[in-house]
């Protein structure tokens, strides 16, 4: 029995290690190939590590291919969408959780029902609308559809419902307005869920592809994923260059994730809780 147990233990640990390797190899190769000399990655048998470190592809991306601009576009949009949507969603969530008005439950149920409509349905009319408004190839084109979301309102409302009414009533008796209550009592108490939702929104906006591809048609407005997909068309053969571009796109998210993993994973749990 004892030896069977040990064999089983070794086998399971090796399996975990193997799956870990399969998960990591694409990333390791991406970083490694981005540091190879031009053409070095297209050899047979394939090389796993560069013969010497070559940073020229990164330099080329920033000096000749406007990578800094794409990076800033991605960063600015992710920050703007996250900030604005957190504010708007939490305000609406407060109304649904703590204010009293007619049709509240019906309105909220109606909002929830919108979640079944896939975003792709809205894209064409939205594109035409934003075109009429002159928002194509501007940050507004990305920010406007991202300003508010039903899922965010839902998540924040669930959390705010757990805040005791007595806290709010006491503040009201002291003469605090709803705006003051919202900013000084509710938002600080929602810190953890705001961080979670903020991380989801930030990463989601950073990684988003289809909508930026539609709205940002001028190369100076590209986000990193759109720039990368376009670069792929012209530089398919430059494996090392493409890998350097991929590293620049993925690395900020990986670093962010390393710091906020706890919040992200707890967010998955909350998101899957059904009412």
């Amino acid at each position: 029995m004892r030896s069977v147990f040990i064999i089983k233990k070794i086998f399971l640990n090796l399996l975990a290690l193997l799956i870990g390797l399969i998960t990591l190899i694409p990333f390791v190769w991406m970083v490694s190939a981005s540091l190879m000399k031009t053409g070095e990655s297209a050899k047979y048998p394939p090389k796993f590590f560069p013969s010497e470190l070559d940073f020229s592809h990164y330099i080329f991306l920033f000096q000749n291919l406007d990578m800094a601009k794409y990076f800033l576009n991605s960063l600015a949009l992710a920050i703007l969408v996250t900030t604005i949507s957190l504010l708007f969603n939490s305000m609406a969530a407060y109304a649904f959780a703590k204010l009293r008005f007619g049709l509240k439950d019906r309105l909220f149920k109606f909002l929830l029902s919108l979640m079944i409509v896939p975003g792709q349905v809205t894209m064409l009319p939205l594109f035409l609308m934003l075109k009429e408004l002159g928002f194509i190839n501007t940050y507004f084109g990305i920010i406007i559809p991202g300003m508010a979301g039903v899922f965010g309102i839902f998540l924040l409302r669930q959390f705010m419902m757990s805040i005791p009414d007595s806290l709010i009533d006491a503040a009201r008796i002291d003469g605090a307005s709803d705006l003051k209550i919202f900013f000084t009592i509710i938002l600080p108490l929602c810190r953890s869920v705001l961080i979670t939702l903020g991380i989801f929104t930030f990463i989601g906006t950073w990684n988003d592809f289809l909508w930026p591809l539609i709205v940002m048609t001028d190369s100076s407005m590209y986000t990193l994923p759109v720039a990368l997909a376009n670069l792929m068309g012209e530089h398919t053969q430059d494996t090392e260059l493409m890998m350097a571009g991929s590293v620049i796109t993925v690395l900020p998210i990986v670093i962010l994730f390393a710091f906020v993993q706890k919040y992200y994973i707890s967010g998955i749990m909350v998101g899957s809780v059904k009412e």
């Binding site: 990333f27 190769w29 990463i203 990684n207 592809f209 994923p225 571009g245 994973i265």
Partner: peptide
């Protein structure tokens, strides 16, 4: 979990 958070366009290229 790492692949989940990474950018699909970048990993598709890889």
């Amino acid at each position: 979990f790492l692949p989940v958070v990474t950018t699909i366009v970048a990993v598709a290229i890889v």
